[in-house]
């Protein structure tokens, strides 16, 4: 995901601000959400249901919570191969052998997309996060299609 690309950030901000459910779920949120993929970052300031600012770096006062995953994890979301809940939930559900399940920690295998930071706020914003994931997936798949991939 090209999180740091200003054009992508603009499209993401516009899409989130046009998403009725995201606006409703984040109506009483005054904080920031960081999206992270390797070195790429997209910091979103959300206030009363709208993304009111964005940056390609983390400001000195940090973020409320972040969604962090590898390039491959975000690709799985964008391609529709995995759902966000699957990617963001711990557990060994995609192993090829019983030995891999045990070696990876069974139900405690870390998720492909982590939700880190203020977990209470992230929990309260769970449905907004699901909408954010859906908007990201839609934007990402449009980009993939435009790139002929």
């Amino acid at each position: 995901m090209r999180f740091a690309d200003p054009a992508f950030q603009e499209r993401l901000q516009d899409a989130l601000n046009a998403d009725e459910e995201f606006a409703l779920e984040s109506r009483w949120f005054d904080g920031s959400i960081l999206l992270e993929c390797g070195p790429e970052r997209c910091w979103l300031k959300v206030y009363r249901g709208q993304v009111i600012d964005r940056l390609e770096f983390v400001p000195a006062f940090g973020y409320t919570f972040k969604l962090v995953g590898s390039e491959d994890a975000w690709r799985l979301l964008v391609s529709g191969e995995r759902t966000f809940t699957d990617l963001a939930t711990s557990g060994s559900r995609h192993c090829e052998t019983l030995e891999q399940i045990v070696a990876g920690g069974g139900g405690y295998r870390p998720p492909e997309i982590g939700i880190e930071g203020n977990g209470i706020e992230a929990g309260r914003l769970h449905l907004a996060i699901l909408r954010l994931a859906a908007v990201l997936a839609a934007l990402g798949s449009t980009e993939l299609a435009a790139a002929g991939r």
């Binding site: 759902t83 209470i120 929990g123 449905l127």
Partner: peptide, 15 residues
């Protein structure tokens, strides 16, 4: 956990 209820509701739907 402020997330548990919406997590379980949508964990159901997404599967």
């Amino acid at each position: 956990s402020t997330a548990w209820r919406p997590f379980l509701e949508y964990a159901a739907v997404e599967s």
